[in-house]
Design a protein around this nucleic acid. Structure first.
Length: 231
DNA sequence: AATGGGCTCAACCGCGTTATC
DNA sequence: TGATAACGCGGTTGAGCCCAT
């Protein structure tokens, strides 16, 4: 079962958009608003597929787009967000008003990647290049066998309670031990903020940090994707 | 002035997810 | 419940520009 093409390929233009096409698209969206990209090209008199119209509007024609160079603040924010979210460009773009996912993705690949590499930081992991990667060095099978040797009772348990909950935590977050965990603010170096849930006392007694709502994330120690506003 | 290599970024492609029938 | 349509996202491509030689 193949997927049907998103549009009639035979009668659509490809490649760079002309001024006239841009004008038609802008005029149509101003009059009718966004939505139903599939039917838009025909209605607007464009020989483009809906996908192409959507991309052109979102990445280039939207009136709220901020054109021009990225600021140092934006650079820093992108790096921080990327370290938390990875290549979730649309989520990152959602935290940078006026910037698109495509723009940020391009900017990352052309500028920030190189910037981090020149500082000796691996852009994929945000760790120092000479820092040995912590990898799991044994296969799951080996570990199960080892565990069975230690305690035969485990043998029967085909599928122990798998916890597949996705959590994004700063790399040095202390875990386990009941109550020993840090709140997100403290673990990112922002202690005693109004959202601090651990009182800032978990970091060597240091509490002289000025607090603010880091990236608007308020969940204690766990990044809640729902709090990230989509564009 | 010619040219080749590197860089930038708009646009395309393919796939996953969600909505609808 | 499965098939199909539509949307949205991330990865990739390629045309055009810039710069060193």
């Amino acid at each position: 079962m193949g997927r049907s093409p998103c549009c009639e390929k035979a009668h659509t233009n490809k490649g760079a958009w002309t001024k006239e096409e841009d004008d038609r698209l802008i005029a149509y969206i101003r009059a009718h608003g966004e939505g139903c990209w599939r039917s838009l090209p025909k209605a607007a008199g464009l020989l483009r597929c809906g996908k192409s119209c959507r991309l052109r509007w979102i990445n280039y024609l939207r009136p709220d787009l901020k054109r021009g160079n990225f600021t140092e603040d934006e650079d820093d924010l992108i790096i921080k967000l990327h370290s938390l979210l990875g290549n979730k460009w649309s989520l990152i773009a959602g935290r940078l008003p006026g910037r698109t996912d495509n723009e940020i993705k391009n900017y990352w690949n052309t500028h920030i990647r190189r910037k981090l590499l020149s500082r000796g930081i691996d852009p994929a992991t945000h760790r120092a290049m000479n820092e040995p990667a912590k990898t799991i060095s044994f296969s799951a099978k080996e570990e199960v066998a080892r565990e069975r040797e230690r305690s035969p009772a485990v043998k029967r348990e085909k599928c122990p309670d798998l916890n597949l909950e996705l959590r994004i935590s700063p790399p040095n977050q202390r875990d386990g031990g009941g109550g020993g965990t840090l709140c997100f603010g403290c673990s990112t170096g922002i202690h005693k903020s109004k959202d601090c849930s651990c009182g800032g006392d978990n970091i060597n007694g240091s509490s002289s940090y000025s607090g603010y709502d880091f990236l608007g994330i308020k969940a204690g120690g766990v990044l809640d994707y729902r709090s990230l506003e989509m564009k």
